[in-house]
Design a protein around this nucleic acid. Structure first.
Lengths: 246, 246
DNA sequence: AGAAAACCTTGACCTAGGTCAACTTGAAGC
DNA sequence: GCTTCAAGTTGACCTAGGTCAAGGTTTTCT
């Protein structure tokens, strides 16, 4: 796990940005993307990176704005969402040790989504130039980037598939099953990472519909809901439901 | 353009596979992914690759089967589609000079989609091992792979966005506009790359709905449809429609 | 603690797009 | 030229999920 890094204890300075190299290096070293990169290289990267603190609800990057680089999350949570006037669709909820903006940073393209902090969050931003340079100079890092992007591609394809082939209940069931992780305990309890409204948007449905679907699953005896805590009573049943047709 | 390569004239041998190094090298050299790779390296790759011919309707790779490597299209067309019993959703229509299977090949994962030839097609398959090795040995190629994957990621994100935020008409309008390319001729005529049924699935709607939507657009004076030929009468109007809300 | 602001739930109703079924058209083989 | 078959069209109807409106419940802020 990543909890071995006491980043929560480190206070970023008041106006939200920090450059404490210890903090930065520690955070980056724990990001899977940088596993397999020599320590001094990580230090280099850290020297050029910046830690920025965002209050819950603050916008990390508006839609269409150019991302200054790759973001890694030290603590907190960020949602990446598409929007259009009165419509919002959450593409991904990014948590500690994860990164976002890699593809956009590499191509130097504007962000296709907007990024908003769901909780008070500490992000480490590695400037595009630093990432690009490291891609050129360190084949191991280049390799890590390739793996990361390939994995993202597969995830997105899976996303498109479920969106196209499965209905709301199935997607919800699949999501809960995924939340429960790989442990195969028949019944366990999971906690939704954020508000139901955001989860709904992440699942491509409206909060009202999520509400009804959760009620249905509860009726069927598959789960029990108590606010953000969801007790899973029949994991295999849930998994089976997720695999069903439209 | 890619038409400078007379691959259509080269006959693959009867049982569908060929190893003529000239053919293979020529095809690969024209694939953007291999631009910037030294010629002898391409020759190396070609030596390990295989050309395979598929009749229209033949399956290149069943869903969930492991892809033996990266596929490049010399001529013809392949659809990548998700399926589930009686449901099919086309994720991408791949044409000459394009490739598919890069992400899966790199991760050694089974294909998330099935690949079926839409026309008689000649594909060149570069084994995963060869791709991986080249990633390790040639930083320029590694860089090209990174760019390609990043671009694919952005495309998929755009896909998810339009699927989520735009209705059928908008998606269709956007698709037609994209087909018309970057030329800004106010009226031009485009040809659908394949049957309307497949196009519909690519757009995430049913053929019946596509039929009705095309009729609507024609009514509105934006286009005129004659079989696969679509005359665009008001390009800006079409583009504007594509950008509208849900 | 108390007020204000999010968040969630529920019911009544609506709509984009899907489903089913009949019919037309066009291309492919004999 | 006639048959066959796949592709496309059209109409009547259906349904998953969205929209609107009205409460109810947590949080959050002062």
């Amino acid at each position: 796990m990543h909890q071995d890094l006491p980043v929560r204890d480190i206070q970023p300075n008041g106006n939200g940005a920090s450059r404490d190299p210890r903090l930065l290096e520690g955070v980056l070293a724990n990001v899977p993307l940088f596993r397999g990169v020599a320590q001094h290289q990580v230090a280099d990267l850290a020297a050029r990176a910046k830690a920025i603190h965002f209050r819950r609800g603050a916008t990390v990057c508006g839609r269409g704005r150019c991302l200054p680089g790759l973001y890694a999350i030290a603590y907190g949570q960020v949602k990446l969402a598409f929007r259009s006037e009165d419509e919002e669709r959450v593409a991904r909820i990014v948590g500690p040790v994860e990164t976002f903006g890699l593809a956009a940073a590499i191509l130097g393209r504007p962000a296709p989504y907007e990024a908003v902090a769901l909780d008070d969050s500490l992000l480490v931003m590695v400037p595009s130039a630093a990432v690009l340079q490291m891609v050129e100079n360190d084949p191991r890092f280049a390799r890590a980037v390739i793996t990361d992007l390939a994995e993202r591609t597969m995830k997105l394809l899976a996303e498109v598939e479920t969106a196209a082939l499965h209905g709301g209940v199935q997607r919800l069931a699949g999501y809960l099953d995924a939340l429960a992780g790989n442990g195969e305990n028949r019944n366990c309890t999971v906690r939704l990472p954020t508000t139901k409204t955001v989860i709904a948007s992440r699942l491509g449905i409206k909060k009202e519909t999520l509400s009804r679907l959760l009620r249905d699953l509860a009726h069927r005896g598959l789960i029990a809901v108590e606010q953000r805590e969801i007790a899973i009573h029949d994991r295999p049943g849930l998994a089976a439901l997720a695999r069903e047709e439209a």
